Computed example of a mutant assay.
Amino acid sequence: MTAPTKPPTTDQIRTAWDTLAPGFDRHTTPHTTRWGEQALAGTAIGPGTRFLDVAAGSGALALPAARRGARVVAVDLAPAMVERLAARARAEGLEHVRALVMDGEHLDLDDDTFDVSASLNGVSLFPDLGRGLAEMARVTRPGGTVLVAAFGPPREAEFIAWTVGALRAAVPGFAGMPTDPPPLPFRLTDPDRFAAVLREAGFSGVTVRQVVVGTFFGSAAELMDTIRSSHPLGAQWIAGLTEDRSTEVRQILDGMLRERSGGAPGAVLHTTINVATGTP
């Protein structure tokens, strides 16, 4: 059993994501936008839908909703993420997007405001998941929908699993991903447990569906850049490599990509996402 550690403070969390924001926007959001599109597939989000994206990053869920015509409020703790989300919305001419700096555990928003409140790998990372879900429920109108999307099993997030495998092969003593407890992004990997968490939070009509999304990585370097920028843990893995180890990891990943693609330097990697919905 891993000894419990003191949770990071809000300021520490904000600083960590602010630091990652430039790389996250450049390397991670282009991939996770595909996840956002799939999470919204089949939902009744369209022109005029009042849509809230909690812990929005630089827009992987908010912008697909806005492209459907929704009136979007997107909030994130990190100002640098909010700046990049707003810039993306302006570049696409998406006028009905408001990007705000806000703590998702303490939303400065009125009760019963939104038709849909959603989060993609956002509220699932909160130190207090229950508080985050309660806030999403509070600001969603009666009969509205709360949608939460989070990673499936780590082995089914190939961009992570492949990198962990390459690091284990190249770096003696690399510990890999902790499992007890797992990192916060993987706290809701089991669909039954995910549904139970929402029911315990007071939601009704809970459903959890799994979607497998393929995204293209053009090179091993792009894959490593995505890992480095996607989460503080990934940044720690890559930052700790010597130049020689980094080269070795890149070479291993290059071989894996070429094997998947039949010789080309890039390949499609797959990620399983659990998409849960419920009515507050």
Rank of each mutant, 00 (worst) to 15 (best):
residue 200 E to P: 05
residue 176 G to T: 05
residue 242 T to V: 11
residue 160 I to A: 04
residue 259 E to A: 15
residue 166 A to N: 01
residue 235 A to L: 07
residue 152 G to E: 08
residue 193 R to Y: 08
residue 176 G to I: 01
residue 149 A to K: 10
residue 211 V to P: 00
residue 139 V to N: 13
residue 261 S to N: 06
residue 220 A to L: 09
residue 242 T to A: 10
residue 252 I to A: 04
residue 164 V to W: 04
residue 162 W to P: 00
residue 169 A to L: 11
residue 149 A to W: 08
residue 260 R to E: 14
residue 222 E to H: 06
residue 255 G to F: 04
residue 209 R to Q: 09
residue 260 R to V: 15
residue 267 A to R: 05
residue 197 V to Q: 02
residue 233 L to C: 12
residue 186 F to A: 14
residue 146 V to A: 10
residue 219 S to C: 00
residue 228 R to V: 03
residue 183 P to D: 12
residue 179 T to Y: 06
residue 228 R to T: 04
residue 252 I to V: 15
residue 182 P to M: 12
residue 198 L to T: 00
residue 213 V to Q: 13
residue 229 S to Q: 06
residue 138 R to M: 07
residue 182 P to W: 05
residue 162 W to R: 11
residue 142 P to S: 14
residue 216 F to S: 01
residue 265 P to E: 13
residue 171 V to W: 02
residue 241 L to D: 14
residue 153 P to K: 00
residue 257 L to C: 14
residue 173 G to M: 12
residue 205 G to K: 10
residue 213 V to S: 10
residue 221 A to L: 12
residue 202 G to N: 08
residue 132 G to A: 00
residue 151 F to C: 12
residue 147 L to M: 15
residue 221 A to M: 05
residue 135 E to C: 11
residue 154 P to L: 03
residue 142 P to D: 10
residue 139 V to C: 09
residue 206 V to T: 10
residue 205 G to M: 10
residue 252 I to C: 09
residue 179 T to L: 09
residue 265 P to Y: 11
residue 259 E to M: 10
residue 141 R to I: 14
residue 206 V to I: 12
residue 252 I to R: 05
residue 161 A to K: 06
residue 233 L to N: 11
residue 185 P to N: 08
residue 253 L to C: 04
residue 210 Q to Y: 03
residue 182 P to G: 15
residue 240 G to L: 06
residue 244 D to W: 03
residue 212 V to G: 13
residue 180 D to P: 09
residue 188 L to I: 08
residue 134 A to K: 07
residue 148 V to T: 10
residue 134 A to E: 11
residue 213 V to M: 06
residue 247 T to S: 15
residue 207 T to Y: 08
residue 139 V to I: 07
residue 166 A to V: 00
residue 200 E to K: 15
residue 135 E to L: 08
residue 163 T to C: 00
residue 207 T to F: 08
residue 153 P to C: 03
residue 262 G to R: 02
residue 149 A to Y: 11
residue 191 P to G: 00
residue 139 V to Q: 07
residue 190 D to G: 04
residue 199 R to T: 14
residue 205 G to E: 13
residue 248 E to K: 11
residue 224 M to R: 00
residue 206 V to H: 12
residue 246 S to F: 09
residue 227 I to L: 15
residue 151 F to D: 03
residue 138 R to S: 13
residue 170 A to N: 10
residue 145 T to F: 06
residue 161 A to L: 06
residue 218 G to Q: 09
residue 268 V to S: 05
residue 136 M to G: 12
residue 212 V to H: 07
residue 224 M to S: 00
residue 267 A to Y: 04
residue 182 P to C: 13
residue 209 R to I: 02
residue 169 A to E: 15
residue 139 V to Y: 05
residue 243 E to K: 14
residue 183 P to C: 09
residue 261 S to V: 06
residue 149 A to T: 05
residue 145 T to S: 12
residue 213 V to Y: 09
residue 148 V to R: 04
residue 222 E to G: 07
residue 157 A to W: 01
residue 247 T to G: 13
residue 164 V to K: 07
residue 163 T to W: 00
residue 250 R to F: 01
residue 150 A to V: 08
